[in-house]
Design a protein around this nucleic acid. Structure first.
Lengths: 185, 185
DNA sequence: AAAGCCATGTCAGTAACTGACATCAACCTA
DNA sequence: TAGGTTGATGTCAGTTACTGACATGGCTTT
């Protein structure tokens, strides 16, 4: 067996992003990705549960960041305010790499099954957010609804952040969406 | 070729529900379902784009129902109120078949990839809802947020409706969730 | 140096889907 | 009524996502 190369995972992620952008998700086989990363297909599936997961490597980190931020939010914050603080903290992880976020978003937008996976990740974020709120003593139903609302704000703000030509601050997008949410009757 | 049997689609749906409930989703092959429905695997995939779709046959009807209800909602309804009227109308399609909804929910809850597909259907409902609101003249951002909020209410209410021992009315669950949403600060 | 761990490679297998083509019943239409 | 058309299905071969079992080889620990 040839000499062992470090960071196979990182190479796989980069190779996948390149190939998906070049030819599209469906037109790229797991074997193509592995080949470009100089590993075998089997190694790809040791690092990622399936072909889509390679695009969602940071999602656990985002959940953890949100969770922590919600727990340390001021005690007088309402559930929704605390949850939104978590979203702002998560957004901070992406804020300085907008170009990467844009490229990734284009890839995901171009494929239904990738959009589906993105929804699953957002649902996981919702679940973690609700859990953090419950840890603050928020009641179940309110925690669910505040979490859903906050993640919705995150989602809508993210979509606008990556689709706008003149990119405003991610945090500003979140504030704008949160204000529109509160204006609902 | 043997005599043609009508309602292959319906037989496939029933066979799939039975088998998923008996052995689970992963443990059931598309061929198993087709066999029980007395057709070939190829016919299964002519009726359903993939193995999961067989559980989501009514989703387009629900979207259409919500869309229509939103359009005919009173003109003085706020965007959120109109969207919620759409959810109540959709809920009406399920209200009298709670047992079926419960069985289906159990199957979906037991499998991550089915939960993922459910999220995609809810996202489609969100998109249709937002479209109906825009047709009422609601601005983009507000339409998105009101649609997301309404579908969240539907989702949360549905989860409670099928998981409660003493089943309240679906519409009552929606009203309760909507009230909790409005109480958010 | 022996033992063991860890990331990877090799290989064979299952099952989800797809395209191309054949069949057969029902239904027009001349 | 003969003959063509349509629509749902069957048949078959192929691709690809994913999995389990086992082998290899470097690196660390003792």
């Amino acid at each position: 067996m040839g000499r062992w190369e470090p960071d196979a995972r990182g190479r796989l992620i980069r190779a996948a992003m390149e190939l998906f952008a070049e030819r599209g998700f469906e037109e790229t086989t797991a074997d193509d990705i592995a080949e470009r990363a100089r590993v075998t297909e089997r190694t790809f599936f040791r690092h990622f549960a399936d072909k889509r997961e390679v695009l969602f490597d940071g999602s656990r980190t985002m959940e953890q960041t949100a969770y922590d931020a919600i727990l340390i939010a001021p005690a007088d914050h309402s559930p929704l305010e605390a949850a939104l603080a978590g979203m702002v903290a998560s957004a901070g992880l992406l804020a300085d790499r907008r170009d990467h976020a844009v490229r990734r978003s284009r890839i995901i937008a171009a494929n239904p099954s990738l959009r589906e996976r993105e929804l699953l990740k957002l649902a996981a974020l919702t679940g973690t957010t609700a859990e953090a709120l419950r840890a603050r003593g928020v009641t179940d139903l309110t925690a669910d609804l505040a979490a859903h609302s906050a993640v919705t704000v995150f989602h809508v703000a993210f979509a606008r952040w990556v689709s706008t030509e003149e990119p405003p601050d991610f945090a500003a997008c979140i504030a704008e969406a949160a204000a529109a949410l509160r204006a609902l009757k």
